[in-house]
Computed example of a mutant assay.
Amino acid sequence: MKILFFSTGNEISNQDNIPDWKVRNSNCHYIKNLDQNFLFNFKNGGILRDGHKKVFKTKITKMLKSSTDIIITSGAVSAGKFDFVPDVIRSFKLSNFFKGVAIRPGKPILFAKIKGNQKVIFGLPGNPMSSAACFRFFVHPYIENILGLKEEKPLMAILKNNFTKKENFVRFAKSKLNTTKNGKVEVEILEGQELYKLKSFVKSNIWALLPAGKSKFKKGEIIKCFFPNHSNRLII
């Protein structure tokens, strides 16, 4: 499975020293580092700047004639002045398309399948936490489905602390998994779930998946968990 990845935005930079208004190209590096664990070959397509609407359309056209299976973009998916990704994708003939899912983090996310073709495009959010969650819970399952693998099973763990979320959204929570002396698997949902807090993501070793339709989760409940950097298949 071959992935072509594009970062977007005038603010994105690959430089070591950047001014305050710029942002490091972290999403590209993060997803690249997952390629050996999640069954894909990664190619960095570079950075699409705010005025690169025509450039992006050309990249998609070339992709349709290449061996690339998936294009992933990071950013420019919402409804701002320079969020050109959805409009460019809609200019192609599509057999499937959605934009926006009731999840946190991960709003917005875009998926499109080119009509008469197996090529697909994922538009991930620019925020690092949202991008990481969307790759794990949308792109990776798609890859496994295309490869004919059975649905990945969650790791079930005992919740160590109470947690409250909005009822109508699925929540992916940065969490810490551990085992007790008597062999029980426990998970703690970490403090610092805000999107801008990266320290909790660095400390975490698991995504806790909290389903929609429920707002309060109590200590002692059994919840579903997924490893962020490799498939659950490696241990289950």
Rank of each mutant, 00 (worst) to 15 (best):
M1A: 11
K2E: 12
L4V: 10
F6W: 08
N10R: 05
N10T: 08
D16L: 10
N17A: 13
D20V: 13
W21T: 14
K22T: 12
N27E: 05
Y30L: 12
N33R: 09
N33L: 07
L34M: 11
D35I: 07
Q36M: 12
K43V: 14
G45W: 00
G51Y: 13
G51T: 13
F56H: 02
K57I: 02
K57Y: 07
K57H: 10
T61Q: 15
K62S: 09
K62D: 09
K65H: 14
S67W: 00
T73S: 06
S74A: 09
S78G: 09
S78H: 08
A79H: 12
A79C: 12
G80S: 08
K81M: 11
F82Q: 14
F84Y: 12
D87T: 06
I89D: 02
R90Y: 00
K93Y: 07
G100Q: 04
A102V: 08
P105D: 01
I109M: 03
F111M: 04
G116W: 02
Q118T: 11
V120R: 01
L124C: 11
P125W: 05
G126T: 06
N127A: 00
M129H: 12
S131T: 13
A133K: 01
A133C: 11
C134Y: 00
C134V: 09
V139A: 02
L147Q: 15
L147F: 01
E152D: 00
P154G: 06
P154L: 00
A157F: 01
K166W: 03
K166E: 15
F172M: 11
A173E: 09
K174A: 08
S175L: 05
T180K: 02
K184Y: 12
V187S: 03
E191A: 13
Q193M: 11
L198H: 10
L198P: 15
S200H: 14
S200T: 12
V202R: 14
K203P: 06
N205Q: 09
I206P: 10
G213R: 11
K224S: 15
K224I: 01
H230M: 11
L234H: 08
